[in-house]
Deep mutational scan, measured.
Amino acid sequence: EPLWIRPDAPSRCTWQLGRPASESPHHHTAPAKSPKILPDILKKIGDTPMVRINKIGKKFGLKCELLAKCEFFNAGGSVKDRISLRMIEDAERDGTLKPGDTIIEPTSGNTGIGLALAAAVRGYRCIIVMPEKMSSEKVDVLRALGAEIVRTPTNARFDSPESHVGVAWRLKNEIPNSHILDQYRNASNPLAHYDTTADEILQQCDGKLDMLVASVGTGGTITGIARKLKEKCPGCRIIGVDPEGSILAEPEELNQTEQTTYEVEGIGYDFIPTVLDRTVVDKWFKSNDEEAFTFARMLIAQEGLLCGGSAGSTVAVAVKAAQELQEGQRCVVILPDSVRNYMTKFLSDRWMLQKGFLKEEDLTEKKPWWWHLRVQELGLSAPLTVLPTITCGHTIEILREKGFDQAPVVDEAGVILGMVTLGNMLSSLLAGKVQPSDQVGKVIYKQFKQIRLTDTLGRLSHILEMDHFALVVHEQIQYHSTGKSSQRQMVFGVVTAIDLLNFVAAQERDQK
């Protein structure tokens, strides 16, 4: 057995438009009618409502009807409940999964919650491996369901041993009777949507819809739904939504950006999952974080739909894509998950301010006199920076000697690579993860907040409520011999709460 199987392995699926269902090699399930009293909570997966979006479509000038398939009504709160249950049931049916076995899954959280929910009911041990950027709410729900959680670096490539995929496979090879159901490759993922989600949409719309818009992560949702719609409703256009920084969209030119990270969760990847059939997507749109969270908040405030950030991405694209539809036509959007997962993220004004998705003037509360002053007023001194090749031991000596707790790590040209902190280095040394002679590049981390000289002290204040420091950066445009230009970030300084307090105190003292 291989040590790991690539999540982007070539698909062996034989589905073709027009091929009889009787030739399918898979076990198919028909939607079942729910009894009045459910035998367990797993029976509350599927049969989610279709809700008309009344205000947002009109606000953006849509002539067509805009409908939302509300997947956050599933038992675990997301569309991923469907595939989690289906993968477990299919693994039980073919004898792969037996009582007492362990389920391991690399996930952005929602599939993990679905699997942990099913594992709690069915009696399996469950280990979820997820990147650090995923919300604390997801972690809390997983723990409450009895799952064990392993976190991995957000910026690790999918084929790196440190990625959530790599760590999951390492655990599988170490733990007896453990299984990775593997949402990236498992046919049960798109089949769950082909058999149930798509049929529900067709039934709820009486077979009449002209466009379907869905955000894409593993691709199982859009693949399964689109294949069924292509068979039953061939005139329906399928629109895929991919965040900026991901590479799922086609044509490839759409993916060209210097951005590699994004805040919206559960969609987009740096590889093409095996289950994603991009041939059934008629057109791709890219979405960005700001519009995703703005539209998610709009869905909550104006439509009462308590959905997550990827739902915002989907609707932001839908109001663009559906401009081509006329009166009497219908566009369906998939709202994948609930706001429950993001209470401390985009639902929080403070978080939105820190990330730059909300401006101070958007909030009406009274601010102190210094709130709208610029960061450049602080008069920061030149920063202490270190090269990635310097040793951890030497870096600790320098920081202690100069009285700093942290320093930016830059390359020879001064471009920011990340940050090192005294606390992080000492804990890594004590844990045996690094040696004093190791290069400081081994303990770089990139989960820090950046701020510009033109940003306000109010925004800085919000950042420092949650973080010990902020890195002050400025952009530099560099022209190359080819005539092309590129933008790079340079370090201007490091600012802490002490710097802000000293500035405010000094100004008030001078005024007296």
Rank of each mutant, 00 (worst) to 15 (best):
I238N: 02
I239P: 05
I239L: 05
G240P: 00
E250S: 12
P251G: 09
E252T: 14
L254W: 10
N255D: 03
T260C: 09
Y262C: 05
V264Y: 02
V264H: 01
E265T: 02
I267R: 00
I267M: 05
I267L: 05
Y269N: 01
L276W: 02
R278L: 04
T279H: 13
T279A: 12
W284A: 00
E290Y: 13
E291F: 09
E291M: 10
A292G: 09
Q302L: 08
L306D: 03
A311R: 03
G312D: 03
V317E: 09
V317N: 08
V319S: 08
V319C: 14
V319L: 14
V319N: 04
Q323V: 11
E324I: 14
R330C: 15
C331H: 00
V332G: 02
V333S: 06
I334T: 09
D337S: 04
D337V: 01
R340P: 04
K345N: 03
L347V: 03
R350V: 07
W351D: 01
K359N: 15
T364H: 10
E365D: 15
E365W: 13
K366I: 12
K367H: 02
P368H: 05
W370N: 05
E377F: 09
E377A: 10
L384G: 10
L384V: 14
V386L: 14
I390F: 05
C392M: 10
G393N: 07
K402N: 15
D405A: 14
P408Q: 12
P408V: 05
D411K: 12
A413S: 14
G418A: 09
G423N: 11
G423M: 02
S428C: 15
P436D: 11
S437H: 09
D438M: 15
Y445N: 09
Q447L: 14
I451R: 09
R452C: 14
L453T: 09
T454I: 14
L457V: 11
R459H: 12
R459W: 11
S461L: 15
I463Y: 11
L464N: 07
L471M: 13
H474E: 11
E475P: 10
Q478H: 15
S481K: 13
G483L: 10
S486Q: 13
Q487H: 13
R488I: 12
V495H: 07
A497S: 13
A497W: 09
L501A: 05
A506E: 10
